[in-house]
């Protein structure tokens, strides 16, 4: 079957051109000797993107166009995806304030319950992962995980 141009690829091309444009303007602010190699990589990315754009246009004229987005995001569950993404971002932010272990407990519990995991399974998963991290990173690798700026003074007093 002849390959049609994917409309979604326009986004890919625009993204690559935007990256080239950003790095190009930033590159101009560097010392002349430091500009050469980044310029080489910018030109390389620009040339390859342009080649891909030409290929897309040839495909569009010869075989037509189709929405690549539908293919890429088939069976996409928007609510589930964006809630999960938001919780992940919130989790990373909260680690800074309430510390790794408490943030992990809250994040895992909320996400597991949102994804409709039975409560007992969720509890086992939370306990197992936290235990694994404590044993592997806390005891074995001796990595001090973030305590959180809000809890640090309290923990200091307790010690």
């Amino acid at each position: 079957m002849k390959e049609k141009m994917k409309l979604s690829d326009i986004g890919v091309v625009l993204f690559m051109y935007a990256v080239c444009a950003y790095f190009y303007t930033q590159n101009l602010q560097l010392k002349p000797e430091s500009q050469t190699y980044p310029r080489f990589t910018i030109i390389l990315l620009f040339a390859l993107t342009t080649m891909y754009l030409v290929k897309m246009l040839i495909q569009a004229f010869k075989n037509g166009v189709h929405k690549g987005k539908d293919e890429a995001f088939k069976d996409f569950q928007p609510a589930q995806f964006f809630v999960s993404l938001a919780l992940v971002v919130l989790y990373v932010v909260m680690i800074n304030f309430i510390g790794f272990y408490i943030a992990t407990f809250i994040f895992m519990t909320l996400l597991l319950l949102y994804l409709k995991v039975p409560k007992l399974h969720a509890l086992i998963a939370v306990v197992a992962i936290m235990l694994l991290i404590y044993l592997a990173f806390g005891l074995f690798l001796k990595v001090k995980l973030p305590e959180g700026v809000w809890l640090k003074p309290l923990l200091k007093q307790l010690r």
């Binding site: 992940v88 992990t104 994040f107 895992m108 996400l111 597991l112 969720a122 998963a125 991290i133």
Partner: peptide, 11 residues
Amino acid sequence: DAILIPCVTVL
């Protein structure tokens, strides 16, 4: 996968 998603994220 519902269990894998948060577990892998934490790791």
